[in-house]
C-alpha cells in the first residue's frame, strides 16, 4: 500500500561558501528577503535557506495532490523529498511504494546513442529490469511513432522527436506514487492530445499523484487535494477547489 507521511518536515539548504562565509552571508541575507525560502542562521557559522518549513501532511492511496505556489515556494523541493532525493533536515518523511518521478525525463539520454540504446539506458535508470525493458520496447516504439528513426543516433532527431522519445520512455513505467513537476507537454498538436491521454492514464493508475503546477485549470481537473505553498510553508490544504479559491484551511489532515 502506497503512502506518504511528512511530519514537521524541514529542509535547509546550506549556502556554500568557503572562508568568506560571513561577508557572503551578510550580502545574501540583505538581498534575499521577499523571494524564495526564508534565510535561517543555523549555527552562527553556516548560513542556510529554509526551503521547507515545518510541513506535516499525509497522503494515502487515491489522493491526488496539486501543489500551488510561486517560484521558490518549495514545490519542487517537496517533490524531491517525496522522491527520496533530499533527506529531512529535521522532522520525518516516510514514503512507501514504488515512486516514479517525472522530472528530468531527459536524464541520461546519450545523443550519440541510438533511440533503442537510449530506451535501454533510460529504462535501467528508471529502475526497470532488462526483461521489463524488452517487454515495453515495442510499445514505446509504437507510441513515440519514431519507427526506423529509433535505429539512428538521437543526435539526428529534431528536439520534438527527442522529447517524444523521452516522454514515451518516462510514461511507460508505472509507479504506485507518481511525482510530477509541471505537466509535461510534448510534440505537435496531434501528438500532444495523444500524450495528454497517456499521461492521464499514468496518473489515473497511480495510487498517489503529486503534481506541482501553475495551471489552475489543470489542477482542478486532475487533483482531489490542493496545497498552497508560501515560503516553504503549507498555508492552505484541503479539497483542490477550496484551496484554489482561497478557502482552504491552514493545517494538513
Amino acid at each position: 500500500m502506497a503512502s506518504i507521511d511528512l511530519e514537521h518536515l524541514c529542509i535547509d539548504f546550506p549556502v556554500a561558501s568557503s572562508q568568506r562565509g560571513h561577508s557572503i552571508k551578510a550580502a545574501v541575507l540583505d538581498k534575499a528577503r521577499g523571494i524564495g525560502g526564508r534565510m535561517v542562521d543555523t549555527s552562527g557559522s553556516a548560513v542556510a535557506v529554509r526551503a521547507i518549513d515545518n510541513v506535516t501532511l499525509s497522503l494515502k492511496v487515491g489522493d491526488r495532490l496539486g501543489l500551488i505556489g510561486h517560484n521558490g515556494s518549495g514545490k519542487t523541493t517537496l517533490l524531491r523529498v517525496m522522491a527520496g532525493i533530499f533527506a529531512p533536515t529535521s522532522g520525518r518523511a516516510e514514503i512507501r511504494g514504488r515512486t516514479v518521478s517525472m522530472f528530468d525525463i531527459g536524464l541520461g539520454i546519450d545523443a550519440e546513442a541510438s533511440g533503442h540504446e537510449n530506451i535501454y539506458m533510460r529504462g535501467l535508470i528508471l529502475g526497470m529490469s532488462e526483461t521489463e525493458i524488452e517487454a515495453k520496447r515495442q510499445e514505446i516504439a509504437e507510441f513515440s511513432e519514431l519507427g526506423p528513426y529509433l535505429d539512428l543516433p538521437v543526435r539526428t532527431y529534431s528536439s520534438g522527436m527527442a522529447m517524444r522519445l523521452m516522454f514515451s520512455i518516462a510514461t511507460s513505467i508505472q509507479g504506485q506514487i507518481v511525482l510530477m513537476d509541471e505537466w509535461i507537454a510534448v510534440g505537435d498538436a496531434q501528438f500532444r492530445d495523444k500524450a495528454n491521454t497517456r499521461l492521464r492514464e499514468v496518473t489515473d493508475r497511480a495510487g498517489i499523484l503529486v503534481i506541482a503546477s501553475h495551471d489552475e485549470g489543470l489542477l482542478r481537473g486532475l487533483c482531489t487535494l490542493g496545497a498552497r505553498m508560501e515560503n516553504g510553508r503549507v498555508t492552505a490544504f484541503g479539497p483542490i477547489a477550496e484551496v484554489l479559491s482561497g478557502e482552504g484551511h491552514g493545517r494538513a489532515a
Binding site: 524531491r80 532525493i85 518521478s101 535508470i125 528508471l126
Partner: peptide, 9 residues
C-alpha cells in the same frame, strides 16, 4: 549533480 537531484539512484 543533475543525476543526483533528478533520479533516485
Amino acid at each position: 549533480g543533475t543525476w543526483i537531484k533528478g533520479s533516485s539512484l
